[in-house]
């Protein structure tokens, strides 16, 4: 899966994007976020309050139950502030 991070989530995690193999325990957005938090203190800090985290899979907004597959483009970012 291809992961993208934007705004302060990118700054806190310390990378804009990364290619990761889908671990066996990750099957939806919620389990993906839970797993990412275990990857290091920067991830844990960035993802500690999921109320301020939005996720898009293949460029569509999704909820925590959305299924995640290995070829997906998954973007993780704060609520949008454009316009």
């Amino acid at each position: 899966m291809h992961l993208l991070y934007f705004a302060w989530l990118r700054a806190k995690i310390g990378t804009a994007e990364e290619e990761l193999a889908l671990p066996s325990q990750v099957h939806d957005v919620k389990s993906l976020l839970d797993w990412l938090k275990t990857r290091g203190p920067n991830y844990a800090e960035a993802l500690k309050d999921l109320g301020t985290v939005r996720v898009a899979v293949n460029q569509d907004y999704v909820g925590p139950e959305h299924r995640v597959r290995d070829g997906d483009e998954i973007a993780i970012f704060p609520p949008v502030t454009g316009g």
């Binding site: 898009a56 907004y61 970012f77 949008v80 454009g82």
Partner: peptide, 26 residues
């Protein structure tokens, strides 16, 4: 269009102030 754009289009603003840079909150 402008109302929907503000809550749906994936843009993020950061501001420069005399106290430093900060991300704009929703």
């Amino acid at each position: 269009l402008i109302d929907w754009l503000k809550t749906d289009a994936p843009f993020w603003k950061s501001e420069e102030t005399p106290e430093g840079k900060r991300w704009v909150e929703k």
